[in-house]
């Protein structure tokens, strides 16, 4: 039995961030499927003990329980990527990675809400979350336009980092809530590179070929 356990919902974009990274790292892990829709099992007493916020993903390893996609990515990078490729230690790079992870956990989460609203009818102020999600995508597009102008394919520096993993799912799944990729050419080029990461996996809503 693998010692890593991921509490997972197949259709959840935040869980996909973690599955994507575990795939890229080539880590073996156990997956516990949680009945989020329609069962709301993630808000049951059993899961509230693991994450009082009542949300997935949750990762456990021995006595450690850690929740939230960005925190889990950081933990996995420090623990299993000894070459420090995915989370470089250089202060300038590390700082910018933290900046974009915070972006992923704040404004970009509007995209997750918009998608959950469009798919599962989760209550949300539709106008507001759509506007916020589009703003997040616009900021990412502007950033990647600059990066590509400087001849780099990745969000930070010249190699893929956990930022690329953290930011990919929301935009890749944006068609689930009616936001097409046509208006984001730089992000489309970037997404093609993310798809090329060894160990890349898809999820429903992200076609294997495009």
């Amino acid at each position: 039995m693998a010692k890593l356990t991921l509490y997972d919902y197949e259709l959840d974009d935040q869980c996909y961030k973690v599955r994507l990274f575990l795939g890229a790292l080539g880590c073996l892990y156990d997956k516990v499927a949680v009945d989020v829709h329609p069962g709301s099992e993630h808000r049951s007493a059993r899961y509230l003990r693991l994450n009082p916020l009542g949300a997935l993903p949750i990762l456990t390893e021995a006595d450690l329980t850690i929740y939230g996609a960005e925190a889990i990515l950081t933990y996995l990078a420090l623990k299993y990527d000894t070459a420090r490729v995915w989370l470089p230690e250089k202060p300038e790079t590390f700082g910018r990675i933290m900046q974009w992870l915070a972006f992923s956990g704040s404004i970009l989460s509007a995209a997750s809400i918009a998608r959950a609203h469009a798919l599962f009818e989760i209550e949300a102020d539709e106008t507001k979350v759509y506007r916020k999600a589009r703003l997040a995508f616009r900021l990412m597009e502007d950033h990647m336009t600059k990066q590509q102008f400087d001849d780099t394919f990745w969000f930070i520096g010249n190699t893929a980092t956990i930022v690329d993993i953290a930011l990919f799912p929301n935009i890749a799944l944006s068609r689930d809530f009616g936001v097409d990729h046509d208006e984001y050419p730089a992000l489309r080029r970037w997404m093609a590179h993310v798809r090329g990461i060894p160990g890349f996996i898809t999820m429903p809503g992200i076609p294997a070929y495009h």
Binding site: E10, L11, A33, V34, D35, H37, G39, L119, R175, D176, G178, P204, G205, P207
Partner: peptide, 22 residues
């Protein structure tokens, strides 16, 4: 298991959703 049955059907359903919406 219930969760396997749910997942099986929901994954198929989401794959179809992309097609019909387009």
């Amino acid at each position: 298991s219930q969760i396997d049955l749910l997942n099986f059907e929901q994954v198929i359903f989401l794959q179809d959703r992309i097609i019909v919406e387009n």
